[in-house]
Design a protein around this nucleic acid. Structure first.
Lengths: 345, 345
DNA sequence: TTGAAAGCGCTAACAT
DNA sequence: ATGTTAGCGCTTTCAA
């Protein structure tokens, strides 16, 4: 905790360089329309004084903040069980940094916080928002829309009212699930089960849909609801084994639940993949590579999703800045997934 | 991406309530010294207009930002392998929220980013910083000190030059390690090995020191360097088994490496804990509870560390605000750990 | 091309 | 107790 020295102002730099504040301002903001020798003088003065623009003063006049809010609804989050968010954050951070924008992180803890977030977003502190709202009934999307802040969602938002036009970035959950199940079919498996994710999240629903796309008339008993956790995977696997002892493959909605399933299969003496093939989803390395056997899974590029969200948002902001009229509304993006073959299927 | 409506200003609220801007300002900032009926009128006007203060304008005059930077050096991070960091963030976020402060997240990717972070911190955009710098030779601590921003570190910073006086929050790594090893000794184990963490991090060094505190004249061959990863744990365990086939206990520097060690022990046919007792560190639930057998480990309260970091920083800021002279410099805090007994030791 | 000057929206003396 | 007023540091017309 050190003492904060008073920072030099534009004024100081101007004095030192022997020019006007306006000129310094121009140089600091790119230097267009200022003759080279002056630019040089100003640059030096900036350097010598260690001048850094006061963002507050700047925002006050430009109405830009060069900051983006990232809203993550915690209540439910896998946030603390897997690196999903850390990766998204990394992607987002990289992109924002390249754009000289700051990342303001808003973690919410239940409904009380929603009001706070709404107020913050409506307060015009940031240029836009990236919102992770994975739940079907999440009030966040609507709230954000009402706040009137340009927003991009992470994952397809639930089918709330006003969110029909929401811009989002998502993985091709349905397509990825299809590919996984087709792979199992290609392996000659016939009794293919599915352990779903938490079905109040669109990703889980989409993966289930993908499973059904391929297994059009599957025995309903072969689908058991999980919750994206290892424990849920174990429970589901046990139930499946009880119901359909003859199953020969399992597609789990994510790697974590697949790891739980694997454990149960081993306990029950089923060999993987010989007796039962298993596929997960995510390609969460610390899990997928460490299971026994290593997990075949559907990879989604999580960091890229983050990067893309930021890019979409920033692009929209830029467009809007150039042409405040209509405002460029980018459209949603669905990223492809890839099947990663390891030993489990 | 919706259209941003122009926000009402203090002026507008004042007009509507039929008072001066100053009065509105007073009400908005707590309402001291304003008579009740007026307060009421202003409140209503604020409500009706949906007024939210412009933070930029406010900062410009108060020189406060109600924002704190959280700096996380990525290069090295376990960030993406475990929920460590998500938990700290949660703790930090809670505390900041309670204090009406925003969290600006700065993720750094190598040296190039250091300059950026330095500039940002020096730029006076935030009231203070929380810095995670786990590496011994990390330039970040010094950089931050130079920026002159009040800072609290997460984890004891490496022994860099200027950082002697740094304020930090850490777990009692050494004490926790001692407790773990003593527990093993209490179990009657005599050939106790240690798989270290990445020794360029103070936490790993401290845990190793704790191990040595108890095993004063341990066979040096019983200490192998790991890197906090499962793969590192496997490698180290194999080496230990080669060197000292008669070992009867292992203290791993974290749960992840313990999980790797467990896998190797199982592969080698050693029963845990009968033949070899194993203890980890962290009590990282998704790992510690899922290993086979469940892991006995040293728990650190990660979320609390985050909360405490924020609290320390904010307290320092408040003190400094009241008495700009000396500025209250809080001192570092070392949080106790607790041994969590499960099945592995 | 450069400078002068008018605010951006707010808080904090200072007056009343 | 309330209002008046002078900036905070910057960008941005507008003139020169």
């Amino acid at each position: 905790m050190t003492e904060t020295a008073p920072r030099p102002t534009l004024e100081a730099v101007a004095a030192r360089a022997g020019v006007s504040r306006a000129t310094v301002s121009r140089v600091v903001n790119g230097g267009d329309g200022v003759r080279e020798p002056l630019v040089e003088r100003v640059r030096r003065a900036v350097e010598e004084l260690g001048y850094v623009p006061n963002q507050a003063a700047r925002s006050l006049v430009t109405k830009r903040h060069d900051a983006v809010a990232v809203v993550i609804a915690e209540p439910e989050t896998r946030v603390f069980a897997d690196p999903f968010f850390a990766l998204q954050l990394r992607g987002i951070s990289k992109e924002l940094t390249a754009h000289d924008s700051q990342l303001v992180l808003l973690l919410t803890e239940g409904r009380a916080d929603h009001a706070r977030v709404g107020r913050y977003l409506a307060g015009g502190h940031v240029d836009g928002a990236l919102v992770f709202s994975l739940h079907l009934d999440d009030p966040l999307p609507e709230l954000v829309q009402r706040a009137g802040v340009p927003t991009v969602f992470g994952g397809r938002p639930g089918w709330g009212d006003g969110t029909g036009s929401a811009v989002y970035v998502d993985s091709d959950n349905r397509g990825g699930a299809r590919e996984a199940v087709r792979h199992l079919v290609g392996l000659g498996r016939r009794r293919i089960a599915h352990i779903t994710g938490a079905l109040d999240q669109t990703s889980a629903v989409d993966r289930l849909d993908g499973f059904r796309d391929v297994m059009v008339d599957a025995d309903p008993g072969l689908v058991v609801e999980g919750d994206f956790t290892p424990a849920g995977g174990e429970r589901a696997m046990r139930e499946l084994l009880g119901r359909c002892p003859d199953l020969d493959a399992v597609f789990a909605a994510n790697d974590l639940s697949a790891s739980g399933a694997l454990r149960v299969l081993r306990d029950e003496g089923r060999r993987v993949p010989d007796d039962v093939a298993v596929i997960g989803f995510d390609d969460m390395l610390p899990v997928a590579e460490q299971t026994d056997p290593p997990l075949t899974t559907v990879r989604q590029d999580i960091e890229e999703m983050g990067r893309l969200m930021a890019r979409l948002l920033l692009r929209g902001l830029d467009r809007r800045a150039e042409d405040p009229g209509v405002g460029g509304v980018p459209s949603s993006v669905v990223l492809p997934t890839t099947l990663v073959r390891r030993a489990s299927a």
